[in-house]
Nucleic acid binder design. Structure first.
Lengths: 112, 112
DNA sequence: TATGATAGTGTGTGATGTACAGTATTGTCA
DNA sequence: TGACAATACTGTACATCACACACTATCATA
């Protein structure tokens, strides 16, 4: 049972950084929080509302996303789109992520 | 200048979880802290002593690594090797890591 | 009419890489 | 031979963020 706790913790740590990249990649076109949760879920990324909404707000605060309200529908929705600054950071983060991946793959191949 | 701070933070977050996987992958054969730093550096993973030594101790405490002192040389060295439990967790973590990677690659391809 | 779905806000907690600080000894170089 | 870099390790506080908990509000459906 303890193994699961350790794995869950480690997987959660893996998510840090990765979630940001996933959200930035998903924000090339405008999308709103609740919809993004379903989109990411379909892609294989399980994320709770309690995690995504604060993340969106933090990324906007940091200037990586821009938001606008759409109140024309019966339900008001906050749309997010990546900013120019966000695009630069997304690309840098993706490069770092890629480098890390190549390293891990190299180690996996060597390790066996 | 602020961009760099954000990127540095995000890259650090990326490391969380990834470092654990890298260390577990690197511990199929016994190796000691100081040497591991150089090995990982050569592979492209920059890690400080202040980060690696506590990490090794934590992983041992969690039962993922086993250690033994080698005092035959002029310098005593603490060798670490992955435990059976650690192998299970390494494999699980690698699977999760792989899943996440496929998702990110899918998003990258779709995003453009 | 009740409840699930839809859509969002607010805030505290636990885990971990980093940073700072330290000890100790060996090996190398001037 | 002394200074210093390299080698090898331990201890601890801090910043950050996914998660968890709590909440509001309204629409759609049974």
């Amino acid at each position: 049972m303890k193994d699961n706790v350790i794995i869950d913790n480690l997987v959660q740590e893996l998510k840090r950084g990765t979630l940001v990249l996933a959200v930035l990649l998903n924000s090339s076109k405008p999308s709103y929080g609740y919809s993004m949760i379903n989109t990411l879920k379909d892609l294989g990324i399980e994320i709770e509302q309690n995690t995504l909404y604060p993340l969106l707000r933090r990324l906007e605060k940091q200037g990586l996303l821009e938001s606008s309200w759409d109140t024309t529908d019966s339900r008001p929705r906050k749309y997010y789109i990546i900013s120019e600054m966000g695009k630069g950071i997304r690309d840098s983060l993706y490069n770092e992520w890629n480098k890390t991946n190549k390293v891990i793959e190299t180690m996996v191949v060597k390790g066996e």
